[in-house]
Design a binder for these strands. Structure first.
Length: 405
DNA sequence: CGTCCACAGGAATGACGGGCGG
DNA sequence: CCGCCCGTCATTCCTGTGGACG
């Protein structure tokens, strides 16, 4: 029963290249754009008819798209854009589209950089002033004599961080352009965002609005079934697997991305375990694994003080279930003293707690306790073990954990 | 019914490392 | 190489506020 190292590797590689579960797992990934988008026919038609004037060289209206995460906003937009560009090519119309995810490029400057890239204009990562970058972008765009459709996905991130300056300038960019025209498609999952916009931006960006309602469990099943056909070998999906993925995701406001993730990871786990079928237990394991990975990634990229504050929250909530800002801050100060480092101010700590809340590792709810002041009630938004494990990967946190007994 | 707690969170500012144009 | 600009993390100073208590 001796297996040599090369045999083992051979097996691993063999398994990696020929899956007993998947035909093509890529179709389950969030960035895959299918040819069919079930239950989004209406939105496709609307966006299509809004953008269609581009094919006659006219400027389409600006569009504002709302919908929660995983409701198909991005997929529909990319899909329509792809078809539009194909058509434009046939007709010989110069339509340039540019998709920017503003969560990844969350500064005005980086967005301009991305937009410029779509024109084939290379700008330095840094060094230029934003105004200069914008000027060059407009100049290059005008030289193209094109209809430029810029899609800004998750614009709430940009607006929160930098305000609506860029939006304003882009929607007004047409006044600076002699030969080109620019259309802005803004995508957001934060409906409240609109209220924070400059009224001028709101009216120009909201020329047309499209709403993406969440999927219900039945619709999610349709989506999953359609992708599963392409992704899995026939017959490997166990009874109720698709229904379970759909049900779990439906609970989270009908998030199709969540549902697809569950299905894909469940398949991967089944494969890893050498199972010939994907079973319900694999879906449950997938749910845990996804959560663990998410937490781990978020926590690892946290700066030291963020980790220390999270560690404080962890310690306090273990005892009493929830914590207040003041409790956390005191605990955190004590940790800093033990480590011999300086603590940040409470003002900053308050911001860090908000950030942790936005990242989804904790829940922080503002409550007023009357006579006893206003504070945040903080609890964990992820399993204790997952957060603890992720924190302990940092040696500086381990330093704090070890002397405890 | 007004006070006043324990913070929330806005605004201005700065230190710092990184990176480009000239 | 310098000067300028960037993003990030942080500080200081500040005004705002829901509701239990007196």
């Amino acid at each position: 029963m001796v297996s040599r190292a090369s045999d083992i590797l051979e097996m691993i590689f063999e398994r990696a290249t020929s899956s007993s579960i998947f035909i093509n797992r890529e179709v389950l990934r969030p960035d895959y754009i299918p040819d069919e988008l079930p239950h989004r026919e209406e939105q496709i038609a609307r966006l299509g008819s809004i953008l269609a004037p581009a094919l006659q060289g006219a400027r389409p209206s600006n569009v504002f798209i709302y919908g929660l995460t995983g409701t198909g906003k991005t997929a529909v937009t990319k899909f329509v854009l792809k078809k539009l560009k194909q058509k434009a090519l046939q007709l010989g119309v110069n339509v340039i589209s540019c998709y920017v995810n503003v969560r990844q490029d969350d500064t005005t400057y980086r967005v301009i950089l991305r937009l410029s890239e779509c024109l084939g204009l290379r700008l330095p990562f840094t060094g230029l002033s934003t105004a200069e970058a914008y000027r060059r972008f407009i100049e290059a765009l005008d030289a193209k004599s094109a209809i430029f459709i810029s899609v800004l996905d998750e614009i709430d991130f940009l607006v929160r961080k930098q305000g609506d300056e860029l939006l304003y300038r882009l929607t007004r960019g047409n006044e600076e352009l002699a030969h080109s025209k620019i259309t802005v498609v803004g995508i957001t999952n934060d409906i409240k965002l609109v209220e924070n916009l400059d009224p001028r931006v709101r009216s120009s960006l909201g020329e047309v609005e499209i709403v993406f309602p969440p999927y219900n469990a039945v619709q999610l099943e349709d989506i999953l079934r359609q992708r599963a056909k392409l992704a899995f070998r026939p017959g490997v999906l166990g009874e109720g697997v698709i229904q379970l993925c759909a049900a779990l995701a439906a609970r989270e406001h009908g998030d199709a991305r969540r549902a697809l993730d569950l299905l894909r990871v469940a398949g991967e786990i089944a494969e890893r375990e050498g199972s010939s079928k994907v079973l319900l237990e694999h879906v449950y394991k997938a749910r845990m694994e996804i959560e663990r990975d998410r937490v781990s990634e978020v926590v690892q990229t946290l700066p030291l003080h963020g980790k220390l504050i999270l560690y404080s929250i962890l310690s306090i909530t273990r005892g009493q279930g929830s914590a207040t800002t003041g409790e956390v801050y005191n605990y955190y100060r004590a940790l800093c003293r033990r480590l011999g480092i300086e603590s940040v101010t409470q003002r900053r700590a308050s911001d860090i707690i908000s950030e942790l809340d936005m990242l989804g590792v904790i829940n922080a709810r503002i409550v007023s306790r009357g006579r006893y002041g206003k504070t945040r009630i903080i609890s964990l938004a992820a399993p204790y073990e997952a957060i603890e494990a992720a924190l302990l990967e940092d040696p500086r946190i381990r330093l704090l954990a070890l002397p405890r007994h």
